[in-house]
């Protein structure tokens, strides 16, 4: 975790502990809604698979308390010849909760198909644009100086 990420985590964490628990969960859910909306408006609809590769998980101490995933495609994604449905993403999200997100509060943007990685390398859409949006929205919700 970089110095700035650690600082942001510290600020959001202190706000989480200082405010009402459910109100703060709701704030993170609003962020998730906004991010999914940005995805819907930004990702061009072709087969829907790129949009379908995108999901959000909110974790508290390793427990997945909110999972956002939107299926637009009428056909499943394929990965090395195998069809991939949202259930596979959910399983992955649950596994990650028990491992790398098992302490503290996390909001995680998932982008899980190889095509998404390809697009990200071309444009930085996920690791740059969406990540910046998410950081802005989280800090805005918790009314921290930006």
């Amino acid at each position: 975790m970089s110095k700035f990420s650690a600082q942001n985590a510290s600020i959001v964490g202190s706000k989480m502990n200082g405010g009402g628990y459910f109100a703060n969960i709701q704030k993170l859910r609003l962020v998730a809604d906004e991010i999914m909306q940005i995805g819907r408006e930004s990702i061009p609809y072709d087969t829907g698979n790129l949009m379908d590769s995108t999901g959000i998980g909110i974790y508290i101490d390793g427990v997945l308390i909110d999972f956002r995933y939107e299926n637009q495609a009428n056909v499943p994604q394929t990965f090395h010849g195998q069809v991939v449905w949202g259930k596979d993403k959910l399983d992955k999200a649950l596994t990650l909760g028990a491992s790398i997100y098992n302490t503290g509060v996390w909001i995680v943007l998932f982008s899980t198909v190889p095509y998404a990685i390809y697009q990200d390398r071309l444009s930085g859409f996920f690791t740059d644009v969406m990540k910046s949006n998410m950081k802005y929205l989280v800090l805005s919700q918790f009314k921290t100086k930006l």
């Binding site: 459910f22 969960i25 427990v63 997945l64 308390i65 939107e70 299926n71 949202g86 259930k87 959910l90």
Partner: peptide
């Protein structure tokens, strides 16, 4: 705050509600 997910097509042809 039990409802973790509500939507469809996590599995083809099904809707899903997930509660903790």
């Amino acid at each position: 705050n039990p409802m973790m997910y509500s939507g469809k097509s996590l599995i083809s042809g099904y809707s899903t509600k997930i509660l903790n």
